[in-house]
């Protein structure tokens, strides 16, 4: 489609929709500087303590719960991204390059997480882990803190599960146009299978793996439903923490947190776009 003269109505509605998309974010950021603790009406810019208008930001950083949640969120996101990027890339290679007995079944299984509601997968995993842990703890007579229970481990394992299909999808798209004669050329020139993968295949599909990993990272950071059903004491993530706050009293600390979140994500995305543009 090329650019042609547009009707002013299209432009106007586009502007309104952009406004709709950004209004909540602007509100969030503005209220991070609210002087009212109840955060219902904007009562002017806060100017309190050593931090002045950044009072809520300072308060946030002295809040151990928030810092723990942030640490958990990042730990989960990093580990699940790395693991799912590796497994997903392997799956993409298998599905794009090879013929094997369970191929169609594997492809179907990889589509399921995309076409069923997340809550179905979430409670499935919950049912599975609680049954597994109950059985395991009673069979091996584990008691007290030694018992297996929901926690960081279950969240990470579950995040990997829903990230794999997305990584596979992205990497497969990249592999789709891959010129196999490049690999043959490498082998012809004396590289064995491993060296061929390291020196030729991987560098060429790396951008695909990277965007797959970025997608997995975003999904993990943003995930609420699966985390909600697989989390346990001590593995609260930021989305779960904010959800908990919403049910009690919400102070502008949450807005400060959101502001930092948005800015961090924007910086990360900006840098990655820059890197992408350079290659």
């Amino acid at each position: 489609m090329s650019s042609t003269k547009r009707s002013p109505w299209i432009t106007l509605s586009a502007l309104l929709i952009y406004f709709f998309l950004y209004a909540p974010i602007v509100v969030l950021i503005v209220f991070a500087f609210n002087s009212s603790k109840t955060n219902i009406v904007f009562e002017g810019v806060v100017n309190q303590g050593a931090c002045g208008p950044f009072y809520w930001f300072c308060k946030l950083f002295s809040n151990d719960d928030v810092l723990d949640a942030a640490k958990n969120t990042l730990t989960i996101a990093f580990i699940s991204t790395i693991v799912s990027a590796i497994i997903g890339t392997m799956a993409a290679l298998a599905l794009q390059r090879y013929d094997f007995p369970v191929k169609r079944a594997s492809e179907a299984a990889l589509y399921i997480p995309i076409v069923i509601p997340e809550i179905v997968m979430g409670i499935g995993i919950l049912v599975f882990f609680s049954a597994l842990f109950t059985w395991f703890n009673s069979t091996f007579g584990l008691v007290g803190d030694g018992r297996l229970a929901m926690g960081l481990g279950t969240v990470i394992v579950s995040h990997i599960a829903f990230s794999i299909p997305f990584v596979t999808l992205v990497v497969r798209a990249r592999l789709h146009g891959f010129d196999k004669s490049l690999e043959e050329a490498a082998m012809d020139l004396g590289a064995n299978e491993f060296t061929t993968f390291r020196r030729v295949t991987f560098p060429l599909i790396a951008p695909g793996v990277l965007s797959g990993a970025l997608l997995a990272f975003t999904l993990s950071l943003d995930d609420f439903i699966i985390t909600f059903f697989t989390t346990g004491p001590g593995s609260t993530t930021l989305p779960i923490y904010v959800y908990g706050l919403l049910r009690r009293i919400v102070t502008p600390e949450v807005n400060a947190l959101s502001t930092i979140w948005i800015l961090t994500v924007l910086i990360v995305v900006f840098i990655s776009q820059r890197l992408e543009a350079r290659r």
Partner: peptide, 12 residues
């Protein structure tokens, strides 16, 4: 907007 958090967007 997608890169801000789901829960935070509803809170807004």
């Amino acid at each position: 907007p997608l890169w801000t958090n789901f829960v935070i967007r509803i809170y807004a």
